[in-house]
Design a protein around this nucleic acid. Structure first.
Length: 436
RNA sequence: GUGGGUGUAGCUCAAUUGGUUAGAGUGCUGGACUGUGGAUCCGGAGGUUGGCGGUUCGACCCCGCUCACCCACCCCA
C-alpha cells in the first residue's frame, strides 16, 4: 500500500507554489547582500558529521546501510566548514555564501509544531572575519526576510556563548559539564524555572552551583539592564561577551534595525556544540510552541577542525523555510493560489484548435502564463476546470469569433465577459495581470 | 526509543446495552444544459469499519497482539 515514512512530506501544487515563491524571496534577499550560492551532497562521511553537534545530536544522524561510515547531512553549517577546508585558497575572504537544501534528522516529527525529519534550510554565512559587523549583517538579513514575508511580530533573541561559559564557570561547574548545563538552561521557557532546577539536580550537579547560576540568570527582566549587570560580574569572558553583543547591536542599529526587535535572552543556549560567540534565534511570540524560525551564531573554531590549520572565524544563520511555512499556515497567511496559470484558452472544436493554439502561443510570447485545454470537451467542463484551479481568465474562440479574429474574454471572478479583438484581448490581459 | 489518546468512504463525522443489507454532508464523476464555471435537481462510483487472531448464535462496538497517526518526553529549523 502507498505510505509515507513519518516526518516526510509530499508537496502538492498548492503548497509547492507557496514554497517556491517564498524561496524566491529569500534567495533574492541573499543576493542583494552579495551572497553567492553553493550546494553540497546529501550524503557525507560520518567522520565529517560526528562530533560537531554534540553527543545527543549524533544519535539523530541518519546512517546509511549501503556502506560503512556514511550518513545524511544534519545541517548545512558542517558541510560548509568541510567545503571551506577543502577549497580554502579558491575562496577569497570574507566569503559570503548561501545554501538552500534539505537536511535530515532522525527525531520524532510533529507536523503542527513544524518538526519534520526532512526539511529545507536556507543558510547564510560569512567566512573569514571576526568583525561584529558580520554578526549584525546576519541578523539584519534574518529580520529583512521575516519582514518581507509578512511576519512582522518576530523577536530576535540574542545571547553569547562566552557569557554562558563565564557564568557556568563562576557558578562552580566543571568545564566538561558546560554543554549539559547549558542544554538544561535552554529549556527554561518550556519547562520553567523549577523544571530546570529539577533536571540539573537529577543530573547530579551540586546544589551550590545550581543556586549560583540561578541567581545569575533568573532575573525577570530579560533585557538590557540585565546585560549591563552581567558586565559587572567580574568575569572576563562574560565581559567580553557583553561588549561583543553591544557592538553587534550598534552596527545593527546603523543598518536600520533597532533594539525593539531584539531581546537579550540569557537563558537561550542553542543545542549545537560548535558555537563560540554570539548566538541568536528568532521566534514568534504569537506561536510559542512553534520553536525558532531562524537560528545561528558565531562558530570560530568549527572550520579549524577540518583544515587543521588554525582557526577561520565564521558566523551565520539558518532561515528555517519549513518552520516559516508552518507558522504562516497556522496564521492563515497564505494566498489562495492553486496554479501559476493566468489564462485558460478553451477549445471550441477540433476544427478550431489551431486558432486556439496560435492564440495561446501569443499570450505566452508576452509572458502571460497560459494553458490550453487539450480536448474539445463541453464548454461547461472547460470552464469548470478553470474554476477548480482558480485560473482567473478564460479565452474562447468559437466559430463566430474565429471568422473576424475576435475572441471571448471571460473574467472568472466577476463572471463578466466581452467579445473583443484578439489583439485587444492580449493588451487587456497584459495590463491587468502586470498591474497586480 | 518511553508513557497517554485515537483509528468507520478521498475529507469531516453518524450508526440504540453487541443485532439483519454500515449512513449523511462534502468532494469526485455522468446527466438535466450539444456556446459558459462557482447555484439547483437527478443518477453513479467509492468500505475487508487500519491489520491479524479471540469471545459470541451474531462484533464497527468486548478482549489480545500488531501497525499507523496525534499528544507528552528527548531534540531542534
Amino acid at each position: 500500500m502507498a505510505r509515507l515514512y513519518r516526518g516526510m512530506r509530499d508537496f502538492l501544487p498548492r503548497q509547492m507554489i507557496s514554497r517556491e515563491e517564498i524561496q524566491e524571496k529569500i534567495r533574492k534577499i541573499f543576493r542583494r547582500w552579495g551572497y553567492v550560492p553553493i550546494e553540497t551532497p546529501a550524503i557525507e562521511l560520518l567522520d565529517t558529521l560526528h562530533g560537531k553537534y554534540g553527543s545527543d545530536a549524533d544519535k539523530l544522524i541518519y546512517k546509511l546501510e549501503h556502506s560503512d561510515g556514511l550518513g545524511l547531512r544534519y545541517d548545512l553549517t558542517v558541510p560548509l566548514a568541510r567545503v571551506i577546508a577543502l577549497y580554502d585558497q579558491q575562496l577569497p575572504k570574507p566569503f559570503r555564501r548561501y545554501q538552500i537544501q534539505p537536511v535530515w534528522r532522525a527525531e520524532r516529527a510533529q507536523k503542527q509544531k513544524g518538526r519534520f525529519r526532512e526539511f529545507v534550510q536556507c543558510d547564510v554565512d560569512i567566512i573569514g572575519t571576526e568583525s561584529p559587523i558580520a554578526d549584525a549583517e546576519i541578523l539584519a538579513i534574518s529580520a529583512e526576510i521575516l519582514t518581507d514575508l509578512g511576519l512582522r511580530d518576530f523577536k530576535i533573541l540574542i545571547n553569547h556563548r562566552q557569557i554562558l561559559r563565564g557564568l557556568v564557570h563562576i557558578s562552580g561547574f566543571a568545564s566538561d559539564d558546560e554543554f549539559s548545563v547549558l542544554r538544561s538552561i535552554d529549556k527554561w521557557d518550556k519547562i520553567g524555572k523549577d523544571g530546570v532546577r529539577e533536571e540539573l539536580a537529577k543530573k547530579g550537579f551540586e546544589r551550590k552551583s545550581i543556586d549560583k547560576i540561578f541567581e545569575l540568570i533568573s532575573v525577570d527582566d530579560t533585557n538590557w539592564n540585565l546585560l549591563s549587570d552581567m558586565s559587572k560580574i567580574g568575569d572576563e569572558r562574560v565581559k567580553a561577551g557583553v561588549d561583543n553583543i553591544r557592538r553587534i547591536l550598534e552596527y545593527l542599529a546603523s543598518l536600520g534595525f533597532g533594539q525593539d526587535i531584539v531581546e537579550f535572552s540569557p537563558r537561550m543556549a542553542r543545542g549545537l556544540d560548535y558555537y563560540t560567540g554570539a548566538i541568536f534565534e528568532t521566534i514568534l511570540p504569537e506561536l510559542p510552541d512553534m520553536g525558532s524560525l531562524t537560528g545561528g551564531g558565531r562558530y570560530d573554531e568549527l572550520i579549524g577542525l577540518f583544515s587543521g590549520k588554525g582557526k577561520i572565524p565564521a558566523c551565520g544563520t539558518t532561515i528555517g523555510l519549513d518552520r516559516i511555512l508552518s507558522a504562516m499556515e497556522e496564521l492563515k497567511m497564505f494566498p489562495d493560489s492553486h496554479t501559476y496559470t493566468k489564462v485558460l484558452v478553451a477549445q471550441f472544436s477540433a476544427q478550431l484548435s489551431s486558432s486556439a493554439l496560435i492564440f495561446s502561443q501569443k499570450l505566452r510570447s508576452v509572458n502571460i502564463p497560459t494553458e490550453m485545454f487539450p480536448e474539445p470537451k463541453k464548454l461547461a467542463k472547460q470552464f469548470a476546470y478553470a474554476n477548480k484551479w482558480n485560473i482567473p481568465f478564460v479565452v474562447l474562440i468559437g466559430e463566430d469569433e474565429a471568422k473576424q479574429e475576435l475572441c471571448v474574454l471571460k473574467d472568472m471572478k466577476t463572471g463578466r465577459q466581452r467579445t473583443v479583438s484578439q489583439n485587444q484581448a492580449i493588451r487587456i490581459l497584459a495590463e491587468t495581470l502586470n498591474s497586480k
